[in-house]
Amino acid sequence: MKKPLALIAALAVLALPLSAQAHRAWLAPTATVLSGTDAWVGFDAGMSNGVFIPDHAAMRLDGLVITAPDGSTAQAENMMRSRYRSTFDVHLTQPGTWKIANVMSGVTATYKENGEDKRWRGQAAEFPGAIPAGATDVVATRTSNRIETFVTLGAPTDSVFTNPADGLALIPVTHPNDLVAGESATFKLSIDGVAAANVEVVVARGGTRYRDNPEEMTVVTGSDGAFTVTWPKPGMYWLNATVRTPAQGDTIATSAQYVAVMEVLP
């Protein structure tokens, strides 16, 4: 509990909602659809003003999880963190669809103890006993951030698409590696395992550095959590959704964010 305040403050910044930060987080592959029986894919991960433009900060990858088509967990290779982006490679050794996700969760809290401002960050299970009994002005938020993308070797599969019991998650109706410009795709959002209704999803196409128009659109999920996107042009797209709930009674506030990166082919 007696972590240096500077470290705690830094961890709290990492836990801020993606949309509340001035910059957008993204995890972008060099390719999403590959042929053959063996392939390599590179990934860039960063935080920036325009999506996929490494101009602000590298993303921490402490929560990186790579799921193979058979459900096993693979390891990233050649990992490196530079000033503006983190990079790594994934060796695709199985046919089918792979999920690459950076998942972060926990609780952040501020409070006063003997008139002094203090901060705490840790796992949800630690929170009940983490705040001193005499603390006042306690403000706590349970955070859940999920940033992911998908790549397919050979024919696409659905085994990596699960509905987790915590946080905001995407459940594809249209496979995310089967997207074509001019066509529509449908997905569903869930929050803590149930349909996330009436949630705004921001969709932005990459490559904004050379365009005056950011080419963004917003769609809203239905009662079943479903939303549909019609892709105007080919390219790499960034999808972002946020769900926040205020504290009620003994329940602390929550903030859940989801980001996906998908490639739309011509």
Results as ranks from 00 to 15, higher is better:
Gly134Cys: 02
Val103Ala: 06
Pro164Cys: 08
Ser159Met: 04
Val261Cys: 06
Lys233Asn: 14
Ala165Tyr: 00
Ala101Ser: 15
Ala31Arg: 07
Val201Thr: 05
Gly134Asp: 13
Asn240Lys: 09
Lys2Leu: 11
Pro128Ala: 01
Ala74His: 04
Arg146Val: 06
Trp120Arg: 03
Pro29His: 07
Arg244Leu: 09
Ala169Asn: 13
His175Glu: 08
Asn145Ser: 12
Ile147Pro: 00
Ala58Cys: 08
Ala155Lys: 12
Gly71Ala: 10
Thr141Arg: 11
Val107Phe: 06
Phe150Lys: 02
Thr218Ala: 08
Leu11Trp: 10
Arg119Cys: 02
Ala9Leu: 09
Glu148Tyr: 04
His56Met: 07
Ala135Lys: 00
Ala155Ser: 12
Val173Asn: 09
Glu215Gly: 00
Ala197Val: 02
Ala155Val: 10
Gln75Val: 11
Ser190Glu: 07
Met104Val: 11
Arg244Pro: 02
Ala124Gly: 01
His91Gln: 15
Val229Pro: 06
Asn163Ser: 10
Ala226Leu: 02
Ala9Arg: 13
Gln21Ile: 00
Asn78Tyr: 08
Gly122Ser: 03
Gly71Met: 11
Thr230Val: 14
Met217Thr: 14
Ile66Gly: 04
Trp231Met: 06
Ile147Thr: 02
Arg81Trp: 00
Met47Trp: 15
Val139Ala: 15
Ala140Gln: 07
Leu239Gly: 03
Ala57Gly: 03
His23Glu: 04
Gly206Ala: 11
Ile53Tyr: 10
Leu11Ile: 00
Glu263Thr: 10
Thr186Phe: 07
Asn198Ser: 15
Tyr258Ile: 13
Ala45Met: 04
Lys118Ile: 05
Val194Pro: 02
Arg121Met: 12
Pro266Asp: 14
Val65Asp: 09
Asn114Gln: 14
Val259Trp: 01
Ile191Met: 10
Pro17Glu: 11
Val220Lys: 14
Ala39Gly: 08
Asn102Glu: 13
Met1Phe: 09
Gly134Pro: 01
Gln75Asp: 13
Asn213Asp: 15
Leu265Asp: 13
Asp212Phe: 12
Ile131Trp: 09
Ala101Lys: 06
Arg142Met: 08
Met217Cys: 06
Gln94Ala: 11
Asp212Glu: 12
Met104Gly: 10
Leu27Val: 02
Ala58Thr: 07
Gly63Phe: 02
Gly182Arg: 05
Ile131Asn: 08
Ala22Arg: 14
Pro156Asp: 03
Asp212Ser: 13
Thr37Pro: 01
Arg83Cys: 01
Ala226Trp: 01
Arg24Gly: 01
Tyr237Leu: 03
Lys233Asp: 14
Val180Lys: 13
Pro4Tyr: 08
Ser184Trp: 02
Phe88Trp: 11
Thr152Glu: 05
Ser184His: 01
Thr218Lys: 11
Ile171Lys: 08
Val138Leu: 07
Ser72Arg: 12
Arg85Pro: 00
Ala9Asp: 13
Gly206Arg: 00
